[in-house]
Each structure stands twice: as structure tokens, then as C-alpha cells.
């Protein structure tokens, strides 16, 4: 963390250009976020760098783009809140005429009602099937979104990849344990993939994010079975700078802070 203003004026341009590597960029941002003077300089540097776009060869968009855009815009304006005129209710029918026809219409009405109920039941069934289908689609969409998110997380430049290993002096049974954590502080997204032997019956493993400052944050409790790999993905508070990740052996169900032996540790180099 740096509380110094960037020393050279070009630092702002290099930042806006995106040329700073992760550590430099983070140091720069951690200062600028709380310095109004520097934030102003960043805005000006962004403008200086932005105009480099004009070095690109001139290409015009195809006319279809504007058309699609304007159609999209107009469709959004006609959305649910758009002004559909209300249909005025018809004036009530003359009661006398209605009563005279009642005798004739009643049996017809009965048959019609039955048909309506049957149709309604059929419709209900269709609706249920439709709802099931929608649920399935929704679920698949969600799974896809999660997979994509994970792929994006892995590709992101600021994502840390931290291997976790068993520590010296760990009991023989845990010596083969290993894991890998991906951690994106900006988003607070974290994934864990690893192997550990099954925990004793009354114990669970617990994954911890140990921040630079403050107490370890629990990132999940897990119980691997039958020598299988564990995969977890979790959302933690965003913006926490991690010092290390660790897995400890805790009473079944986990604890609010680590109490048991650390079986895997992954310091951030």
C-alpha cells in the first residue's frame, strides 16, 4: 500500500495506457482511490491516452447496426411500462333481456362451464410441464453462467493462483495432501481444488483466507470422501488482500476461527 503521490507525471499516462504490471498497478490504484488530486490527473491522462484511438485505420460500421440499435431502443421504450391504452368496459347489458334468455342459456352455460373446467385442468397440466421445462432451462443457464464465470475468473489478469502443500511435521496420512486456490480479490471470488484424505468422523476440513490485516476468514467447510478431489467455489467479501490460504482440521461442521492443526498452507509469494 502506498500513500505517496506517483512521483512522475508520466506515471498517470502509463497507468491509463494499462502498461503497469499488477503490483505497480495495485500500488497506484490504492493511492489514487483516496486522493482527489491524483484522481483528476488520472481523468486527464485517460483523455490523453484515449485519443490514441485515432491512430486506427478508419472503418465505418455497417448500416444494420444503427437499425438494430434503434429497434432495440424503441422496443425497450414499449416495454411493460409502455403506454398500452386501457379498453373501456362495455356498459352493462339490459337486465330484462338478460333474464328472459336465462332459461335457455343455463344448460348451455353448464356445458360450457364443464368444458372450461376440463380445458382449465388440461391447461394446468400443460402449464406445469412448461414450468418444469422453464426450470430446467433456468438451471442450465445458471450452470453455464457459473462455468463461464469460473473461466473468466481463471483468465483474469489479477487472479492469484496459489498452491497449497502439507506442512513439515504433518502426520504421515496428510503428507500427500495438496490443493490449488484461485483468488480474485477484486471480485471476492475464490475456487478451491484439492485432495486430502477423508477427515476423521468427528472432524471437518476448513479452508481459510488469512488476510494481510485481521483475523482469518472462513472460506468453506468440506469433507472429502473415498479419496476424491474436492472442488469448491465461493464468494467472499471483495477487496481483501490475502497473505496466505490454509486448510485446518476442525471439529465437524467447522469453527468461526481456526483451532485445529493446519494441514495445508499456501503463502502468497
Amino acid at each position: 500500500m502506498s500513500s505517496e503521490h506517483p512521483t512522475r507525471p508520466e506515471d498517470f499516462d502509463l497507468y491509463a495506457l494499462g502498461a503497469l504490471d499488477d503490483a505497480e498497478r495495485q500500488a497506484f490504484e490504492s493511492h489514487v482511490v483516496s486522493c482527489a488530486d491524483c484522481a483528476e490527473k488520472v481523468a486527464a491522462a485517460r483523455g490523453r491516452i484515449a485519443i490514441l484511438a485515432f491512430a486506427a485505420p478508419t472503418v465505418a460500421p455497417s448500416p444494420g447496426v444503427k437499425e438494430t440499435l434503434m429497434r432495440q431502443v424503441i422496443a425497450s421504450a414499449e416495454g411493460p411500462s409502455g403506454g398500452l391504452a386501457r379498453v373501456k368496459p362495455e356498459p352493462a347489458a339490459d337486465a330484462g333481456v338478460f333474464a328472459r334468455w336465462w332459461g335457455v342459456l343455463l344448460p348451455v352455460a353448464g356445458a360450457f362451464a364443464l368444458a372450461t373446467v376440463l380445458l382449465w385442468l388440461h391447461n394446468e397440466q400443460l402449464n406445469r410441464q412448461l414450468a418444469d421445462l422453464r426450470n430446467t432451462i433456468e438451471q442450465q443457464k445458471q450452470e453455464l453462467a457459473e462455468t463461464r464465470h469460473q473461466a473468466d475468473l481463471i483468465a483474469a489478469r489479477e487472479t492469484l493462483v496459489v498452491p497449497l502443500w502439507s506442512q513439515k511435521g504433518t502426520p504421515e496420512s496428510h503428507a500427500e495432501g495438496h490443493a490449488r486456490v484461485l483468488y480474485n480479490a477484486k471480485e471476492g471470488m475464490m475456487t478451491y481444488d484439492g485432495w486430502l484424505p477423508s477427515a476423521p468422523a468427528d472432524k471437518s476440513y476448513q479452508l481459510w483466507l488469512v488476510p494481510m490485516n485481521g483475523a482469518p476468514i472462513s472460506a468453506g467447510v468440506f469433507n472429502p470422501q473415498n479419496g476424491e478431489m474436492s472442488h469448491m467455489m465461493m464468494k467472499l467479501p471483495a477487496g481483501v488482500t490475502a497473505k496466505e490460504f490454509a486448510v485446518s482440521l476442525e471439529p465437524a461442521g467447522g469453527m468461526t476461527h481456526p483451532t485445529g492443526p493446519m494441514v495445508l498452507v499456501g503463502p502468497i509469494s
Partner: peptide
Amino acid sequence: DRYSGMLTSVLNR
């Protein structure tokens, strides 16, 4: 109309 040309150029580049 004002900015799509400038943006298309940089996006394509």
C-alpha cells in the same frame, strides 16, 4: 452518427 465511426475504427483495430 457522431461517434460510431470513431468507435468502429478502434474496435476493429
